[in-house]
Design a protein around this nucleic acid. Structure first.
Lengths: 147, 147
DNA sequence: CGACTTGGTTCGGAATCCGAACTCACCTAT
DNA sequence: ATAGGTGAGTTCGGATTCCGAACCAAGTCG
């Protein structure tokens, strides 16, 4: 375990679950549709013991659920829970950042609004003021994260 | 180095820069206002050699710039570049996820809209349709990330 | 001068990671 | 029924990487 780094911070908490070299890539694969051990393994070029461990951790934390989907050869699949699904904003943010600043030449995957097919944007919104705004207009209340 | 895992994916690219146990926490500290080596070190309970290495990497990748801000004892500070600032959506997303699903009992830091003081939300928006939408309404074009 | 601060670097030992080989339960072909 | 194959792991060294403690250098203060 990580010895509580003095700071009770939700980013810290999230990273205790997600913050190693593979976990987020496993999640990316899950969002792409992978469900079974072998699928993750094929797509990710990760060592099997590490994959086993990461999947187990994610199940324990409630990000995946492990379900038997076939009895007679007993096979199970790892599905994103709602908690896991809720990571999509984080992955989308990472993806867009990579697109923008690490563009490796080729055209990256573009996310679009399903209904109209136009590219999506990600914004901070204030429902009171009913407007979107930039990172510079964020303030924080107690602990002090200030973009 | 990571041997290119077959897949030219921006999430992969981002994680090659950010994806280890400490880098995102260093960025969190930067957003909180830390600039100097010692500040990061004090707040993060990280080994100095690792901190040295991570800061160097982040400077090389263009996330931080290292600037001399005092000559006569030569002191420099690490400042977020625009590229670094652009990570705020990712960190905000992680923080909100942690708030929501890993709530460690106490009241977490709340982000608010600076102008009005009301809590902020983070949404996907389509400027064509001029509306916000949920992860389930995202589609992807070439490579295949589909929340 | 000698103590102290800042920003590191140099060490081993400890934890992690990884590839390859092995296991185990089951299915399919002969 | 035996042989071979597959999917999902586990076990085993060896190679990385991490980390704590100690050391170093430049500058400043008393």
């Amino acid at each position: 375990m990580v010895e509580a780094a003095a700071d009770s911070c939700s980013i810290q908490a999230s990273l205790d679950v997600l913050g190693d070299r593979w976990t987020m890539l496993i999640l990316r694969e899950a969002f792409r549709g992978s469900r079974r051990f072998g699928e993750f393994h094929d797509h990710l070029d990760i060592a099997k013991p590490v994959l086993t461990d990461r999947l187990k951790r994610l199940v324990e934390h409630g990000v995946f659920s492990k379900q038997l989907y076939c009895e007679r050869p007993p096979r199970h699949e790892y599905r994103l829970t709602e908690m896991g699904m809720a990571l999509s904003p984080a992955l989308v943010a990472l993806m867009r950042w990579g697109d923008r600043y690490l563009a490796s030449g080729d055209a990256p995957t573009v996310l679009v609004h399903d209904a109209c097919g136009h590219p999506l944007d990600q914004q901070f919104v204030c429902w009171e003021c009913d407007l979107t705004f930039t990172p510079h207009e964020i303030d924080s209340r107690p602990g002090g994260f200030r973009p």
